[in-house]
Design a protein around this nucleic acid. Structure first.
Lengths: 206, 206
DNA sequence: AAACAATACGAACGGTCGTATTATTAGTTT
DNA sequence: AAACTAATAATACGACCGTTCGTATTGTTT
């Protein structure tokens, strides 16, 4: 079944609703804390009916990761790619990331930071999926930086600068959740600006 | 009972063994994944006997945090304070931190990074304890940086530099666990060096 | 030796977990 | 309207969770 000329049918609607709730829960309580019974209760559906959509907890977790990745792409990557490649895009991506965290697109802050730490030291398919997303993201950042370098707008090692920027993002995200304030975002913004200005030799126009 | 002229007595020995194992488990599986039954089985003691030492799961978690804090102090703070205050100590603390992570003092990497993310978005005493340790650590870093600034060995905003350094540490720690390699440590070391050199105007002697 | 506290134990509690099996409802097709 | 299929629900299972209880063992104090 799945789809009928673009319209969603019953099963897929449910699946969507489940995953939308799942990413929110997991961003707060993790992919382990995401329990099938709880998810079903919160959505007002039966545990067994929900379970049938995924077949196993691990499949639910993997589907949740894919759903979160789509949201992340929409909220961070797409808007950054709306501006020209180069330094401006590097800056924009940083702004988008901090905004994505600050706006609490996921109520527990960045979904991937949360669950990556949860599964960092464990084996299994969930770990592999998260390691893959992390690699993918770092490579994306690196390529965005590299475009700026190739255009002569930045003098830096792309991998190194991507590492630094990502480190600022994550530190800000954790601090803001842990202490429930915004101070980390301002510090990160300042660090990003300083880091980019020292790699351009000029003052950023933003 | 507790102690007899410095010698540990039975109960305290058990408590120590429990907590030593608890920090290791929690660094991999979190403070939630740290279950009393599992802990007891691994140590070859009874679940109820172990439980009696703490009275509640939350108390066990809080005691585990305190135990981890002692280890962290021994492994990171104390060796850094063995050298003179100032720039050298800033550098040494960075080296100690990366080494603490790399040596896997806790098998899952930095205990506090792991469990801070676990409890960042939740309420309760465990969250408060972890937020407190985080604040304490950031203030310590800041004061170490400030000493270097006051001696004229560094030109920087202490809070800002502490934020950056801590961000590099944590990014390296996560990358190394998630991808099971050392690349993040080299990148962090490079970032720290560059950051400090740009704040001194000179080349670091290390 | 008697009394007392500290420590550890096994068994059991009510709950929740993920999962499997079986039944029922709803939607589409003929 | 009947037949078929996809989607949801009901029920049950064993495993493990944190916690409580009663009891045995050990060590200290009197």
């Amino acid at each position: 079944m799945e789809k009928v000329d673009g319209r969603l049918v019953r099963g897929d609607q449910t699946r969507r609703a489940v995953l939308r709730r799942a990413v929110d829960i997991a961003s707060v309580d993790g992919l382990e804390g995401l329990s099938i019974g709880r998810l079903a209760t919160e959505l007002g559906i039966s545990k067994s009916g929900l379970f049938a959509h995924f077949g196993s907890k691990e499949e639910l977790q993997l589907a949740t990761i894919r759903a979160a990745r789509r949201i992340y792409a929409d909220e961070v990557v797409t808007p950054a790619f709306a501006v020209e490649p180069g330094l401006e895009r590097v800056w924009r991506m940083s702004e988008c990331w901090l905004d994505y965290s600050r706006r609490r697109v996921f109520p527990g802050g960045c979904f991937f930071q949360k669950v990556s730490h949860e599964y960092a030291a464990r084996g299994g398919a969930v770990h592999e999926a998260l390691a893959g997303v992390h690699r993918e993201w770092m490579e994306l950042m690196e390529s965005v930086v590299r475009e700026a370098v190739e255009r002569g707008e930045l003098d830096a090692d792309p991998a190194q600068l991507a590492f630094d920027l990502n480190a600022y993002y994550e530190a800000a995200n954790l601090a803001s959740i842990l202490h429930d304030n915004q101070a980390g975002y301002d510090q990160a913004r300042q660090s990003i600006r300083t880091r980019l200005e020292s790699a351009t030799g000029t003052t950023l126009p933003w």
